[in-house]
């Protein structure tokens, strides 16, 4: 099963390499990984999406917790949560198809952020499923390039991950 794990980690040189190293060392999957400093500059927040049996996920959270620089973590998929990913996607947009691309972007509430006579560059935000659905709707033949940020997530309601 897919899990989204949010981690607060000391914002120190090498801290990220410990997380990445842990995953490869122990044969865990990383599907996506995002990381950036938080409002407290001494802390970074990292979101990992991973998959595995319950036992593997339990090991992942325990092993992450064991890293000295990890301050706190939560498996967001254990409760209600919001997940978002941002994609920039460069699409062929010529002839009759140009309008169709525009319509699809509107339906998915994307924004065209750059235009040439034959290309739209689109910014789209949503969960992984929405982004995948957009690519399907456009048709892979029209996709020139994509870049996705990976998932970031936050719990719904009054649950807060902070120290």
């Amino acid at each position: 099963m897919r899990h989204i794990i949010a981690v607060l980690i000391e914002n120190e040189a090498g801290a990220l390499s410990r997380v990445v190293g842990l995953f490869s060392q122990r044969n865990f999957n990383i599907e996506t990984l995002t990381v950036a400093p938080t409002e407290d500059p001494t802390l970074s927040r990292l979101t990992v999406t991973t998959s595995g049996s319950d036992r593997v996920i339990e090991q992942i959270t325990k092993q992450l917790n064991k890293l000295i620089e990890v301050v706190k973590l939560v498996d967001l998929t254990e409760g209600d949560h919001i997940e978002r990913e941002m994609m920039l996607i460069k699409l062929k947009a010529t002839g009759q198809h140009r309008d169709e691309v525009k319509r699809t972007v509107d339906i998915f509430r994307g924004q065209i952020v750059d235009v040439t006579s034959s290309i739209y560059t689109v910014q789209l935000t949503g969960d992984q499923g929405k982004l995948d659905a957009f690519i399907n709707a456009i048709g892979e033949a029209y996709v020139l390039e994509t870049v996705r940020t990976g998932v970031s997530g936050i719990a719904r309601g009054d649950k807060v991950l902070s120290i």
Binding site: R55, E58, Q59, K62, Q63, N65, K66
Partner: peptide, 10 residues
Amino acid sequence: DPSSISKTIA
């Protein structure tokens, strides 16, 4: 060490 518990044997 919590990670040693239920690692190989539940």
